[in-house]
Design a protein around this nucleic acid. Structure first.
Length: 925
RNA sequence: GCCUCGGUGGUGGAAUUGGUAGACACGCAGGACUUAAAAUCCUGUUCGCCGAAAAAGCGAGUGCGGGUUCGAUUCCCGCCCGAGGCACCA
């Protein structure tokens, strides 16, 4: 009987489906464990072999946990709103809902073939109205909340209003408009519209004005990476910045908690670093400098800068403000007006990307000066794009001797540099040290810079010209898109006031549309449906929510996916709690992970869930790269030259389909038939073989290096595929796909099969008790596999299985009692073959619910060990010793060992080091 | 520039706390079975030296240069290279 994996896998997949083997109950006496994969966007391209890597790892782990007695939640769904479906609709006239359904069907069939243990009854789709009803509902909760900074907790808007009515906003400074301050009586006197405006400045989901990349020709808003050199990627049309009404999430109010929460979760250090760098907390001061405006208007008198180094205040040689700074116009003098205007024009012509990417030094003098607060000197105010409007106050005090960018700027524009750090500054580059003793620094003279920071801050605060300030790099998250294929907002505009719908009016269903042209005035396609937009005497919000809306809370919906009364019952979320293990790629490091952490915190604050970090442990799977194959065409000809000879010609490199190449050898006939262009190709070969070049790169259709898991499963089976993906290397590491290597794993599967069946003899398993040696080999394997699985070292676990099967084969072990237990250990990795053989052995029930074998240590006890004997650290021989040998025993034996004696040359050793269970080292004199 | 991760045979990788470097595989070479192929099995496979060969031995060896240690892929210092992320972030 042969290993007929196709039949076996089909049979058990149907069987498990029929018996609801993967159904998970919220009602269980077992301890819970929640294993989550980052759900996929169902793209039209389907899955390639790189996608399932993380899914397989989480599946193995889920099955392992189940065997260890846990009630395991392991769901799957689709992040099915998104731009590609909308783009596809525009290009092919197929509505996003239709193409999305098709894509999901493809994904599902691909996933099913791999034999995952998902409970599909819990599937979620973010584009399903029963799902996005709750996305909208959560949005309403955020809209109806504000951050109480004193309590560091979100509270209801009604409580804020109550506080305004009794004491104005003195206790709760406005996050949206920093200088806003009013009394209780002033609040009561405000118009309803003004009140709404003020509240909007507090809400966690709020509406404001933001700049977008607007392309007139396409009539649409573009993402940063769709804009190249100031023109659209598609079509090359000009792109300008346009101010638009946009929705935002006030994630900045959670900056501190998002930072603090990182201490409580088990993410990789690099992941935590990425998030804290994104949040970008820094301590410093906001300092007001008095403007010395000789000729400009007197309306403005101060320039506020943010600095992390107030200790360097005496080293200021100039000020720089961002080109977008609100003071630009008022501080520009008449003489400088022309220069400033042309500079601003130049800056406007540059995309954000360009401004950030280039190292070019540009800027212009405004003509105005500031007064130094402690010295009698005037400081010129410059305008330059290296200062960003959105960070700090959009203005800096430049200290060229201590800051590299300031130094380069000063050099470029010949601004004299003041040295406040003596020999620490050599005149050729800035030195950002904090270790120097200050000079030329008035009251700070002689102080160590790191100490001077506090002294300077105290003085500035005492004089009322500056104050300590904690700054965050992170900005509020834009939450609206001028697109169609996303969640509609549950908001109706009435007399320019945003009115939330009530929960009972949800969901606001996305109306079907076939023509997805943008609406007028930079609005999304929904603006083209005035009859839909008109609602209750107002106009619906026609923007939609961004891709990350639905994915910010989906892990909660899996807990209670059918609930029609709540996004998830408190009972369900209390039972399942945090995601114990979250597996996904690093590309979501700052986006999705920060947003979902914020939503979780908000829902926690409002009392809807009992935990404020969603993911207890995060594992980032690496990417599987494609191994591309390249051919080299001699320029201007139809001649292709083999890789080894290509340097002798001027060639163009072309990707060829990896399926036409065996190793590096090109199938030349297949190549000629591949595309009409190549029909007449001729080849310069190396001994008759055309060798392709190779390159590791992203798996992508355009490189012809995509490998479809369906093909692999068809050829080798799901179990082999699963084990091979795990065998490839550590899950967290990027690695190339090499289809050839799968043979080894497949051979392992067949070898395993032969422990049960012989091609000629049929069944060979028997009731003969397994030998101690067999048990020893088995338990050694179990121990290793279990340890490795627990620490996500799946590749070494697979190799332990191989060693185990090799050992049992050598020992001719076919004992049923041992083999049955083997199958349990194997089941998480290769569930189909395990279930089949489990049934073959006549075991009761399903292997999925068997109990995991406990390692019997008695078989693993060693009485002796083969010790390596090193001379001066270099292993020269081995010595078999009793496990309890003492130092004296060892020395006696070592000294009579012929090899050791040879090295000693009759002299006594300086020292003999014996580390029990490890090694012996003889140190020569 | 900054942050993070990495660099080990022809290839993927192993070595969990400083203790036999190269597990397990792929590939390759040779062999067995076969008319042949597939499948399967066996042997070898870090490099160099010595040898007809085998055995044994010697030397080198985990990106490079130092250091700590009886002993370093592992720890420390200084470099080089690669991948990913962030970025005129004050």
């Amino acid at each position: 009987m042969e290993y007929a994996f196709r039949n076996i896998e089909r049979k058990w997949q149907e069987n498990w489906k029929a018996s609801n083997a993967y159904k998970v109950s919220n009602d269980s006496t077992k301890p819970k464990y929640y294993v989550l994969d980052m759900f996929p966007y169902p793209s039209g391209a389907g899955l390639h072999v790189g996608h399932p890597l993380g899914y397989i790892a989480s599946d193995v782990f889920s099955r392992y946990k189940r065997l260890k007695g846990f009630n395991v939640l392991h769901p799957m769904g689709y992040d099915s709103f998104g731009l590609p479906a909308e783009q596809y609709a525009i290009e092919h006239g197929i509505p996003p809902a239709v193409s999305t359904d098709q894509n999901i069907a493809t994904f599902r069939s691909q996933l099913d073939k791999i034999g995952f243990c998902y409970d599909w009854e819990r599937e979620v789709r973010t584009s399903d109205k029963e799902y996005y009803k709750w996305t909208q509902w959560i949005f309403l909760q955020l809209f109806d909340s504000w951050m109480d900074r004193r309590q560091q907790k979100a509270r209801r808007i009604s409580e804020l209003m109550a506080s305004f009515e009794s004491e104005g906003n003195a206790s709760h400074p406005c996050p949206g408009e920093k200088n806003l301050s009013f009394t209780a009586s002033a609040w009561l006197a405000f118009s309803e519209k003004r009140k709404a405006e003020i509240l909007m400045h507090y809400r966690l989901a709020f509406c404001g004005i933001g700049e977008v990349n607007w392309c007139e020709a396409l009539g649409t808003v573009l993402a940063n990476d769709e804009v190249i050199n100031g023109v659209s990627e598609r079509g090359g049309h000009p792109v300008v910045k346009k101010k638009l009404r946009q929705w935002y999430l006030r994630i900045t109010e959670y900056a501190e908690r998002l930072l603090a929460g990182l201490q409580t979760v088990d993410f990789s250090e690099s992941m935590k670093d990425m998030q804290s760098n994104w949040i970008g907390k820094s301590f410093g001061a906001e300092i007001d400098f008095e403007l010395d405006l000789a000729q400009a208007s007197a309306e403005v008198s101060k320039l506020k800068v943010y600095t992390t180094r107030p200790d360097t205040i005496f080293g200021i040689d100039f000020m720089v403000i961002a080109p977008e700074h609100e003071l630009v116009a008022s501080i520009t003098t008449a003489e400088q007006a022309a220069a400033v205007n042309s500079y601003i024009e130049y800056v406007n012509s540059r995309s954000e990307r360009e401004r950030m990417a280039e190292k070019k030094i540009t800027g212009v003098f405004s003509g105005s000066y500031c007064k130094h607060p402690f010295e009698d000197r005037k400081i010129p105010v410059w305008i330059s794009e290296y200062v960003l409007a959105g960070y700090g106050t959009g203005a800096i005090m430049a200290v060229p001797c201590g800051d590299e960018r300031d130094f380069k700027f000063a050099n470029h524009f010949n601004i004299p540099i003041t040295n406040i750090i003596g020999s620490f500054y050599d005149g050729t580059e800035a030195n950002p040290t904090k270790e120097a003793k200050l000079e030329n620094s008035g009251f700070l003279n002689g102080l160590l810079m790191s100490d001077a920071i506090a002294v300077a801050l105290d003085k500035l605060e005492a004089l009322g010209i500056g104050k300590r300030h904690t700054n965050y790099k992170m900005r509020d998250a834009a939450f609206s898109r001028q697109r169609y294929w996303g969640e509609p907002f549950p908001i109706v505009w009435k007399a320019e006031v945003a009115a939330p719908l009530s929960s009972s009016e949800l969901p606001v269903v996305l109306p079907p549309m076939t023509d997805l042209r943008p609406g007028p005035d930079a609005q999304g396609p929904l603006a083209n449906l005035p009859e839909w937009a008109a609602f209750e005497g107002g106009t619906r919000e026609v923007n939609t929510m961004p891709g990350y809306a639905g994915s910010s809370w989906y892990f909660l919906r899996y807990m209670d996916p059918k609930n029609t009364d709540a996004f998830c019952s408190r009972e369900a979320s209390d039972y399942w709690g945090q995601v114990d293990l979250y597996i996904g790629g690093t590309e979501h490091a700052v986006g999705h992970l920060l947003y979902s952490r914020m939503w979780t915190k908000a829902l926690f604050d409002l009392g809807y869930i009992g935990f404020d970090e969603p993911f207890k442990r995060l594992v980032n799977q690496g990417k599987i790269g494609g191994d591309s194959r390249l051919v080299y065409r001699i320029r201007g000809t139809k001649k292709f030259v083999s890789a080894g000879l290509k340097d002798q010609h001027e060639t163009d490199e072309l990707h060829v389909d990896v399926s036409m190449v065996d190793g590096l050898d090109l199938d030349m006939e297949a190549f000629k038939q591949w595309k009409p262009d190549f029909a007449e190709a001729t080849f310069i070969t190396e001994d008759g073989v055309y060798k392709c070049g190779s390159r590791l790169e992203k798996m992508s259709k355009r490189y012809f290096n995509v490998v479809n898991p369906d093909d692999i499963v068809e050829r080798y089976g799901a179990d082999t595929f699963r084990m091979y993906e795990m065998f490839l290397g550590p899950v967290e590491q990027d690695k190339p796909w090499d289809t050839k290597g799968i043979e080894g794993v497949h051979r392992f599967m067949k070898k395993l099969w032969r422990l049960f069946f012989d091609v000629e003899k049929g069944a060979v398993f028997n009731d003969i008790p397994a030998s101690d040696a067999a048990w020893k080999a088995f338990y050694k394997m179990v121990k290793k596999v279990e340890e490795d699985t627990a620490r996500f070292s799946f590749n070494t676990a697979v190799s332990s299985f191989m060693i185990g099967v090799n050992d049992l084969t050598d020992l001719h072990c076919h004992s049923k009692d041992l083999l049955a237990q083997f199958l349990v250990v194997l089941a998480p990795y290769a569930p189909h073959i395990a279930e089949e053989l489990w049934a073959v052995l006549g075991q009761s029930g399903s292997v999925l619910d068997a109990s995991y074998p406990a390692v019997e240590e008695k078989y693993l006890v060693e009485t002796s060990k083969e010790y390596p004997v090193a001379i001066n650290g270099k292993t020269r021989t081995t010595l078999n010793l009793d496990i309890n040998a003492t130092q004296a025993d060892v020395e006696a034996l070592v000294l009579v060992d012929p090899i050791v004696m040879k090295w000693l040359e009759g002299k006594p050793p300086k020292k003999i080091i014996y580390v029990k269970n490890k090694m012996i080292n003889v140190v020569l004199g």
